[in-house]
């Protein structure tokens, strides 16, 4: 689904990613491990071009996202992202946070379809809806998702009143509202109080069970061992080792990985 070829990312003279190759297949849960400053977050952020790659290619469904001519917004709609600091919209209620992007995209598609219809070109008939229909559909979906993470009663409050764990759960279902093909998690539990980590990991686990494709940067080794289908160890901008959780945790080969695991386990 996502294929990264020889990805290079440099901030000025500082080379953060140095020729990374990675292939994330449909339904895989790839956990990216590495010491701080190893480039794991940058790698994840390159996958949806939040950081523009300095070199190499990122193929998403066969389209090269590193190409500046590609309409990145279109592809980002299918790549969900969950941040360390949640990044919920502070000026919107939880419900509005969730429906904002779906409504925006649906309205845009509707406008496009109307224009195509007007000029007699072929168009997708389902795209043409009234504004009310679009809103109701988005709301219905958001309500269902909120119910799934047990936050239905928080639909009309502002994010500032939620706890960290609640914010992150909202952030996860917010990305689900767009029906993404893959979700990127950038240290989703690092900014949380220890007792709230569990509730967020539970949501992620249930997503994994449903077969969602995920790429996760995390320090939660328990989660990596239990849920991941593949673990990737990265240091100094290079992938040093990659394999199943048992290969990585029980039988590490690279000395740097052994050293890393010794320190944290």
């Amino acid at each position: 689904m996502i294929r990264v070829c020889n990805l290079v990312k440099a901030f000025g003279d500082n080379v953060v990613l140095d020729g990374v190759d990675l292939h994330i297949k449909q339904g895989e849960i790839v956990v990216i491990l590495g010491p701080s400053g190893s480039g794991k977050s940058t790698l994840l952020r390159c996958l949806n071009c939040m950081e523009d790659p300095s070199g190499g290619n990122i193929f998403f469904h066969g389209v090269d996202l590193a190409d500046m001519k590609v309409d990145i917004n279109l592809h980002r709609q299918k790549i969900g992202m969950v941040f360390q600091h949640f990044n919920l919209f502070n000026n919107k209620t939880v419900m509005d946070n969730m429906t904002l992007a779906p409504v925006y995209v649906a309205k845009k598609n509707c406008r496009k379809a109307r224009v195509r219809k007007f000029f007699g070109k072929d168009y997708v008939a389902e795209d043409i809806k009234t504004a009310k229909q679009i809103k109701e559909e988005a709301k219905e979906k958001a309500t269902e998702l909120l119910g799934r993470v047990g936050l239905l009663e928080k639909a009309d409050v502002y994010p500032s009143t939620l706890s960290g764990g609640q914010k992150q759960r909202v952030a996860i279902v917010r990305s689900l509202c767009m029906n993404p093909d893959v979700i990127l998690f950038d240290e989703p539990t690092s900014a949380l109080d220890p007792e709230m980590v569990g509730e967020v990991l539970d949501v992620m686990k249930s997503l994994a069970l449903e077969g969602m494709t995920m790429a996760v940067v995390t320090h939660e080794m328990g989660f990596a061992r239990e849920v991941a289908t593949r673990v990737v160890f990265i240091d100094e901008g290079k992938i040093l080792e990659s394999g199943t959780p048992s290969e990585i945790f029980d039988n590490p080969k690279h000395p740097r990985l052994k050293q890393f695991l010794d320190k944290i386990l």
Binding site: N48, M50, N73, L74, H75, R76, Q77, K78, I79, G80, M81, F83, H85, F86, N87, L88, F89, N90, L100, A101, Y104, V105, R174, S175, M178
Partner: peptide, 15 residues
């Protein structure tokens, strides 16, 4: 305004 707000929006596919 926190730069995360812009990132959050862009990551959802908003322009």
């Amino acid at each position: 305004v926190d730069s995360g707000q812009m990132e959050g929006g862009r990551a959802m596919g908003l322009s």
